[in-house]
Amino acid sequence: MIEEQAPSNQLDATVIRYDKTHSLVIGIFYILGCVGLVWLINWFDWPFIFAILSVIVTIVSFCMDYFILPYLRYKSIRYEVHPTYLEILKGVFFRTREIIPIERVQQVSIEDGPLSRRYQVQIVEIQTAGTSHRVPLLLEEDAQALKVRIMDLIKEVQSDV
Rank of each mutant, 00 (worst) to 15 (best):
M1D: 10
I2F: 01
A6L: 14
P7R: 08
P7V: 01
P7I: 04
N9W: 02
N9I: 07
L11D: 09
D12M: 01
A13K: 12
Y18R: 10
T21A: 15
L24S: 07
L24H: 13
G27Q: 11
G33R: 07
V35E: 02
W43V: 08
W46M: 14
W46P: 00
P47N: 03
S54F: 07
I56P: 03
I56H: 05
I59R: 06
F62M: 05
C63Y: 03
M64A: 11
F67D: 03
I68E: 04
L72D: 09
R73K: 14
R73T: 07
Y74H: 15
Y79A: 07
Y79P: 02
Y79T: 04
V81D: 00
H82K: 15
P83S: 07
I88C: 05
L89K: 13
F94I: 13
F94H: 07
T96Y: 10
I99T: 07
R104M: 01
R104W: 00
G113F: 06
L115C: 08
S116I: 09
V121Q: 03
Q122S: 12
E125V: 15
T128S: 01
A129R: 06
A129M: 12
R134Q: 14
P136W: 03
L137C: 12
L138C: 14
L138Q: 11
D142H: 11
Q144S: 09
A145N: 14
K147F: 09
K147N: 05
R149G: 00
K155M: 08
